[in-house]
């Protein structure tokens, strides 16, 4: 996520590969081009709005500043757009709230204000890093529904990062599952939930879904703990915890395999994870 925005300090991180957004390679952008890219083409929202917003300026001032950095527009017009944005993110009494400082708003309201700030220059890509994790259940669902609606209304593309599969299912068309720094499975939300193929996805869903949490029944668990990223096991990073691992899995990272329906899986044992086989094994 931070790599997409090139937020990682360049002298302390090594970056390889390419990031192409709107036909342009982000990794090769100049400083100036990057400043245009951030905000006007891609914007980001964070888990903790109180840290992401500036505490000494009102939210309205922060939105106006953002717009005027990117566009030649009068202060009054920028303010009018800020008001429009606040209405879009459904903040009640928006005029009054624009003049509020971040600490004066409630948690859900701050999260909406940060979304409004991110959308200030109508980006096409919104990166959302655990935006609902710190919120209460009743507020979380409001923000998820808001993101869904904004995505439709503005034709946004959203990358939504979360550890909560339930939240991902609420907003996502496609879901990519990551393990130890690699995408191990990618599919439409429906396919991923109904017929997961990577053993890690299978384990994750088994320990979480409603059907799995039946009283008095033991939860199916994935043994062990996530690996240390500084000290990854050779081969497939999931092999030490995998119920299907063979010797071959411990030699070399498995390739990404293409499956029907445009899905991909990074696993050597998918011949053993087809849904028919798994239900047969369970019986």
């Amino acid at each position: 996520m931070r790599a997409v925005m090139r937020l990682n300090p360049e002298d302390r991180s090594k970056m390889g590969g390419r990031i192409v957004a709107g036909g342009q390679d982000v990794t090769r952008m100049s400083r100036r081009r990057l400043n245009r890219f951030r905000g006007a083409e891609a914007a980001m929202i964070f888990q903790e709005p109180l840290l992401a917003l500036d505490p000494v300026y009102t939210i309205g001032m922060q939105i106006v500043e953002t717009i005027r950095v990117h566009e030649r527009i009068s202060r009054a017009d920028a303010w009018a757009r800020a008001l429009d944005l606040f209405e879009r993110v459904q903040i009640p009494s928006p005029e009054r709230r624009l003049n509020a400082y971040p600490h004066e708003l409630s948690g859900g309201m701050r999260q909406r204000a940060m979304i409004a700030l991110a959308l200030a220059c109508w980006p096409q890509l919104l990166l959302a890093d655990e935006p609902t994790t710190a919120l209460d259940a009743s507020v979380q669902i409001q923000v998820l529904l808001l993101l869904r609606q904004l995505q439709r209304d503005l034709g946004l593309s959203i990358i939504f990062v979360t550890h909560d599969i339930g939240a991902a299912v609420e907003v996502a068309d496609r879901i990519a599952v990551m393990y130890a720094g690699r995408i191990v499975e990618e599919a439409s939300a429906r396919d991923l939930i109904n017929t997961p193929r990577h053993p890690y996805t299978i384990g994750l869903l088994k320990s979480r879904t409603h059907d799995a949490m039946v009283k008095e029944h033991k939860l199916d668990t994935i043994p062990g703990a996530p690996p240390d990223l500084a000290n990854l096991p050779e081969g497939c990073a999931f092999a030490p915890r995998c119920y299907l691992a063979q010797d071959a899995c411990r030699r070399g990272v498995p390739d990404l395999q293409q499956l029907e329906g445009g899905r991909t899986v990074r696993c050597r044992r998918i011949d053993r994870t087809a849904p028919e086989l798994r239900s047969a094994a369970a019986q």
Binding site: A137, Q140, I141, L144, I165, G166, S188, R190, I193, N194
Partner: peptide, 8 residues
Amino acid sequence: SMPTGDPD
């Protein structure tokens, strides 16, 4: 308010 976990 609980996500259903069901894409349908």
